[in-house]
Design a protein around this nucleic acid. Structure first.
Lengths: 121, 121
DNA sequence: TATTTTTATACATCAAAGTATATATTTACA
DNA sequence: TGTAAATATATACTTTGATGTATAAAAATA
């Protein structure tokens, strides 16, 4: 299992090389010292959130992009999100019915969690 | 424009409260000192990548989840969106069951739409 | 090979993590 | 109710690691 810091480093380097930037160029636009940037690409350090923020601006991506693994994306949420948007197009009563079902499922989950907690005590 | 650190803090706190965990419980499972966790939720510090990694494990989400903005909530109705995020925390089989129900509702809607279109012609 | 360009590393400084403790909040019992 | 005990959250202080600065090493170009 690849370490997250290395994944982030690889993604950052890949983005830079895709844009054919030198480290210096990236840093000129981001106020990150080139030396620090070098350490980030080589996973010698764990870049802070504000550093990632600066890099995301330069590369014009979301920060989340840095954490995406190469192997087939676990985009379980995407299809769900599409469905959700469609739910909005349902009639009010249909929407309510669906929401009730969701509530049930979630209540069930919470109940199980609470039981777990009790057992753990 | 909301700061990324604050966004991350909010997302982390929301995930914890949904699971009805105390800070201590989260920390027991993650080796993060409770004091440090408190500072993270209050955006007093920028959590490191390895800290985010530990939290992602406890909450059973991708790290990218911490960086997702609430903007999506403006596209869809708000209470629904909150439920959706909760669905993510359900077990796989429960999730599948719920998705099937959603599919059914949507298929039904499509069918009616198609009928409407036919009638209108 | 000299020069320029690119990337990496040594060292000082500041912020996150770790430890201990304090403060707040909830709960249990008289 | 009031209050003691327990639980939950926040904060001071030390340690460790990321950032900032300067410089060195490596690679590319002429």
């Amino acid at each position: 299992m690849i370490q997250t810091v290395e994944l982030v480093a690889k993604n950052i380097k890949r983005l830079r090389e895709f844009k054919s930037f030198s480290q210096k160029e990236v840093c000129a636009d981001s106020t990150i010292p080139q030396g620090q940037y070098s350490r980030i690409e080589n996973a010698k350090v764990e870049p802070s959130i504000s550093t990632l923020e600066k890099l995301a601006l330069v590369f014009e991506v979301d920060i989340a992009e840095f954490f995406k693994s190469d192997d087939l994306e676990q985009e379980v949420n995407l299809p769900l999100m599409q469905k959700i948007k469609m739910i909005d197009t349902l009639a009010k009563d249909e929407q309510q019915a669906l929401l009730k079902m969701i509530d049930l499922a979630l209540a069930n989950k919470r109940m199980k969690d609470n039981l777990q907690t009790l057992i753990a005590q």
